[in-house]
């Protein structure tokens, strides 16, 4: 039952997402390298290394998505 509720909630959430977004030809800004969620992976890696060795929390950060959405 609980699982069905979670699945229903997820589907509702994702279909809500369908109203958001842009057409494939409107991704000019999203395609810019500086608009990537992690625009500088090297800097992000260096930061993660410092914070990993100085704080009790590490990871949990993001990955790709968005972008040019070409093809």
């Amino acid at each position: 039952m609980k699982r069905i509720a979670v699945a229903a909630a997820l589907i509702a959430l994702l279909s809500g997402c369908a109203d958001l977004g842009v057409k494939p030809w409107q991704r000019d800004i999203l395609a810019q390298p500086e608009m990537q969620l992690i625009s500088d992976p090297v800097e992000a890696g260096l930061d993660d290394h410092i914070y990993f060795s100085k704080e009790a929390t590490s990871g949990g950060r993001g990955f790709g998505g968005g972008g040019c959405g070409c093809n």
């Binding site: 810019q32 992976p41 993660d48 990871g59 993001g62 968005g66 972008g67």
Partner: peptide, 15 residues
């Protein structure tokens, strides 16, 4: 994964 290497995959447009 080590999530740190996940971070290396930002789908940057290739110049």
């Amino acid at each position: 994964t080590k999530m740190t290497s996940q971070t290396e995959q930002a789908v940057a447009e290739h110049q």
